[in-house]
């Protein structure tokens, strides 16, 4: 009898039974994929991004497929945090799998207010902050593109909750390590890398953009090499755990992120294509560990072999 490998990891104080988490916006409000499998078998569930009030979202077309990628401009459509807590949360599977809410606001005080509200809800285990959205108080520039603003948002959320706070970084910046260090200093317990890459697609026949919003965020296998690079870079620059995401379709993709140093991974676009993608990754990681005689998944994390080249090559490790 071979003993099962230990897949549990620790994300800034949040212990999860395996490193597979669903990415915000690709798993609905938590229940939608239950016809296909029991979501409680996953490490954690991150539900659709929530704002203070209902957001109707962008006019259609909201999505377009590009080679190996999905370009979306949903417009952060959601029912609002109160409706989620009152209407969706009570009917979610009653088990111990952590539910993480992803939140976003258009002003720093909105983040603070949501953190305060979530603090009173036991069933929510942690908060992931989306800082890729425009800051209306600062001319619409995304919070996540400026280290000071990113730190201020993080600080306000951390001050209003005792739950672990994960900051999800945007890749659309000059130097992601500066932002990563800023949110770490502001008290973030973990960092998710990365959100979607800004992109466009044009219909040559009509000469119109394929998205009504003109620009959108690119996800899927097309972004995986870039996302891996960013995880590699952030891991070299912070001490807190990094959750890797960007185009993970199967367990081998997940392993790539773990090897470059991600403590956990998120499955996003793959959920749309294969509703069982996330649970298959959990099962395949288990089989992989058994096959490779790995008793604890933490043995893999950061195990990238680089022939002497190391993380410091690409980053300027803050302790140096």
């Amino acid at each position: 009898m071979v003993s099962q490998p230990d897949l549990s990891v620790n994300i800034g104080g949040l212990k999860i039974k395996n490193p597979v988490i669903t990415a915000s916006g690709t798993f609905g409000y938590g229940n939608e994929l239950t016809p296909f499998y029991d979501p409680s078998l996953l490490g954690a569930i991150i539900v659709k991004g929530l704002s203070l009030k209902l957001i109707p979202g962008n006019p259609p077309p909201r999505i377009v497929e590009t080679p190996c990628g999905l370009l979306n401009a949903i417009g952060l459509a959601n029912i609002g945090i109160e409706a989620f807590i009152e209407e969706k949360l009570p009917s979610l599977f009653k088990n111990k799998t952590p539910i993480i809410t992803n939140i976003y606001g258009h002003a720093i005080k909105e983040y603070a207010e949501m953190a305060k509200r979530i603090e009173s809800v036991d069933r929510i285990a942690a908060i992931e902050i989306n800082i890729s959205c425009p800051n209306v108080e600062q001319g619409g520039m995304a919070f996540g593109t400026d280290p000071d603003t990113a730190a201020m948002v993080t600080d306000q959320v951390v001050k209003n909750t005792t739950k672990p706070v994960i900051v999800k970084l945007t890749p659309n910046v000059t130097d992601i390590s500066t932002i990563a260090r800023a949110v770490e200093s502001a008290g973030a317990q973990a960092i998710s890398v990365t959100n979607t890459f800004l992109g466009m697609s044009v219909d040559v026949a009509t000469r119109q953009p394929k998205l009504a919003n003109i620009i959108g965020g690119l996800s899927g296998p097309a972004i995986k090499p870039m996302a891996l690079y960013l995880v590699h870079k952030v891991v070299a620059n912070v001490e807190i755990p990094v959750i890797g995401l960007g185009g993970i379709m199967d367990y081998q993709d997940a392993l790539e992120f773990l090897l470059v140093g991600a403590s956990a991974i998120q499955v996003g676009t793959a959920n749309f294509i294969n509703p069982k993608a996330a649970i298959e990754i959990v099962n395949d990681l288990t089989d992989y560990c058994l096959r490779e005689k790995i008793s604890n998944i933490n043995e893999i994390i950061g195990g990238l072999k680089t022939n002497g080249e190391n993380h410091e090559k690409i980053g300027d490790k803050k302790n140096k």
Partner: peptide, 17 residues
Amino acid sequence: EGCMACGLGICQGCAVK
């Protein structure tokens, strides 16, 4: 018809006013 990624109510791509 709608442009949709999942067909399951998750992606919210296939919005119609």
